[in-house]
């Protein structure tokens, strides 16, 4: 077993849950309240130095009784050691964990993807938006087990929405504000953007 587990237990006590070796990797569960603190400690402490975030993902089991897990794959490049950290969430409860993007910049898109696919909110993430699905996607979170393989909407409804989508909506308000482009849009386009749920429009009347 990875010696980091003992070091974690010595430092954080009962915030560290089960630990096990599965298929050659050490997996350790931590309490979600102290995740950020633990991650910062794992990154910065000499002797740990997990400086490389390999991946962030989430797992929902078919068994509804089991909690939803957010999985972090950490690696120390200098020690060539891997550690997998898990946080368990109640799928019916509050799906919020602290973002690790301030610790590893690589977490940015990975957490956005988990948010997009599982609906888990990362507190403190600088730019938590959908990434693979479009911003106005309304069918839910595709990788959740209650999400049907073919999507929630009927094919007819999906086609209807695709045909009715306005192309300008593919710019976020933030992007349109770059060049103050909003004021230069034709009136009907502005009207459609105003009607869409696209957040607050800058420089609008």
């Amino acid at each position: 077993m990875n010696p980091s587990v003992d070091a974690l237990r010595a430092t954080f006590g009962d915030a560290i849950g089960r630990a096990a070796d599965v298929c050659g990797d050490t997996i350790v569960s931590v309490r979600r309240e102290r995740l950020y603190e633990i991650m910062k400690w794992l990154r910065a402490t000499p002797g740990q130095r997990y400086d490389y975030l390999v991946d962030v993902t989430a797992v929902e089991y078919r068994d509804r009784e089991r909690p939803l897990e957010v999985v972090y794959f950490l690696r120390s490049l200098e020690r060539r050691a891997d550690l997998r950290v898990k946080v368990e969430l109640d799928p019916t409860g509050d799906l919020t964990v602290d973002s690790v993007t301030p610790v590893w910049a690589g977490g940015n898109w990975l957490e956005r993807e988990v948010y997009d696919m599982f609906g888990i909110t990362f507190r403190g993430h600088p730019d938590l938006r959908r990434i693979l699905m479009w911003e106005t996607y309304a069918e839910g979170y595709p990788l959740r087990k209650d999400f049907p393989l073919r999507g929630r909407f009927s094919r007819a409804e999906q086609v209807r929405q695709a045909l009715n989508a306005n192309p300008e909506a593919h710019y976020s308000m933030e992007e349109l504000s770059i060049a103050e482009a909003y004021t230069e849009l034709p009136a009907d386009m502005r009207e459609r953007l105003r009607k869409g749920e696209r957040g607050k429009i800058p420089h609008s009347e």
């Binding site: 390999v54 991946d55 993902t57 797992v59 929902e60 089991y61 078919r62 068994d63 999985v71 794959f73 690589g106 940015n108 898109w109 990975l110 993807e113 990788l143």
Partner: peptide, 26 residues
């Protein structure tokens, strides 16, 4: 990376690809 989580059946509970191009593009 390929990450499989199994619950003992013939189909994985979760199949995760760690996509290098996606992470590099970020």
């Amino acid at each position: 990376g390929n990450y499989f989580v199994s619950d003992g059946t013939a189909k994985p509970v979760r199949w995760r690809i760690r996509p290098p191009a996606f992470i590099n593009l970020a």
